[in-house]
Simulated scan of single mutants.
Amino acid sequence: MVRATIKPNSRKGPLVEVADDGTLTLYVRAPAVEGKANKAAIELLATHFGVSRSAVRLSAGATSRFKRFEVDI
């Protein structure tokens, strides 16, 4: 399980930053509308971990900035 904070509409992204406690901060350019930021976060995590998009699932926090993802590595 991966804990992440999403920063939608970010000019800095797409970027993944890893904190000391292991949580990730995901900077995505997509807006937080109609699940676009969630989809962008899944694609970004898949690229970061080197897996396919289907290996990354949002397990909690669909409408929150704080999310949990499951990644099949």
Rank of each mutant, 00 (worst) to 15 (best):
Met1His: 10
Thr63His: 15
Glu17Gln: 12
Glu70Cys: 14
Val18Trp: 12
Asn38Met: 07
Glu17Met: 15
Phe49Val: 07
Arg29Ala: 06
Ile73Tyr: 09
Phe69Gly: 12
Val33Ala: 07
Ala55Pro: 03
Val2Glu: 10
Ala32Lys: 00
Leu26Pro: 01
Ala60Asp: 10
Lys39Ala: 15
Arg11Phe: 03
Lys39Asp: 14
Leu24Asn: 06
Ile73Asn: 15
Ser54Gly: 11
Phe69Met: 14
Arg57Glu: 10
Lys67Met: 05
Ser64Met: 06
Arg3Ile: 11
Ile6Gly: 00
Ser54Val: 10
Glu17Phe: 11
Lys7Thr: 09
Val16Ile: 12
Leu26Thr: 02
Arg57Trp: 08
Arg3Gln: 12
Ser59Met: 10
Glu70Lys: 11
Ala46Ile: 08
Lys7Asn: 11
Glu70Arg: 08
Glu34Lys: 07
Arg29Asn: 06
Ala40Asn: 04
Met1Arg: 14
Pro31Gln: 04
Leu44Arg: 00
Thr63Asn: 15
Ala30Ile: 02
Glu17Asn: 13
Thr63Gln: 15
Leu58Ile: 06
Ala37Pro: 01
Glu17Asp: 14
Lys7Pro: 05
Val71Trp: 09
Arg29Gly: 07
His48Ile: 07
Thr5Glu: 12
Ala19Val: 09
Leu26Glu: 01
Arg29Val: 05
Leu45Ser: 03
Leu15Lys: 08
Tyr27Ala: 00
Ser52Met: 15
Glu43Cys: 10
Asn9Asp: 15
Ala30Thr: 03
Val51Glu: 04
Thr47Val: 12
Leu45Thr: 02
Ser54His: 13
Phe49Trp: 04
Lys67Asp: 04
Leu58Thr: 06
Thr5Cys: 15
Met1Glu: 11
Gly50Asp: 05
Arg11Cys: 02
Lys12Thr: 12
Ala55Cys: 08
Lys67Gln: 07
Ser10Arg: 00
Gly35Phe: 00
Met1Ile: 12
Asn9Trp: 08
Gly22Pro: 02
Val18Met: 15
Val71Tyr: 12
Leu24Ile: 09
Ala46Val: 12
Ala4Met: 05
Phe49Tyr: 08
Arg11Val: 03
Ser10Ile: 00
Leu45Val: 04
Ala32Val: 00
Ile73Lys: 15
Lys7Phe: 06
Ile42Asp: 02
Lys36Tyr: 03
Pro14Gly: 05
Leu26His: 01
Ala55Ile: 03
Ile73Thr: 13
Ser52Tyr: 10
Arg3Cys: 10
Met1Asn: 14
Asp20Thr: 15
Lys12His: 14
Pro31Ser: 04
Val71Cys: 14
Phe69Asp: 10
Thr47Pro: 05
Glu34Asn: 11
Asp21Ala: 03
Ala32Thr: 00
Pro8Glu: 03
Glu34Ile: 04
Arg68Gln: 09
Pro31Phe: 01
Ala62Tyr: 03
Ala60Pro: 10
Asp21Phe: 01
Lys39Cys: 15
Pro14Phe: 01
Thr25Ser: 09
Leu45Ala: 03
Arg57Met: 13
Ala19Gly: 15
Ala46Asn: 08
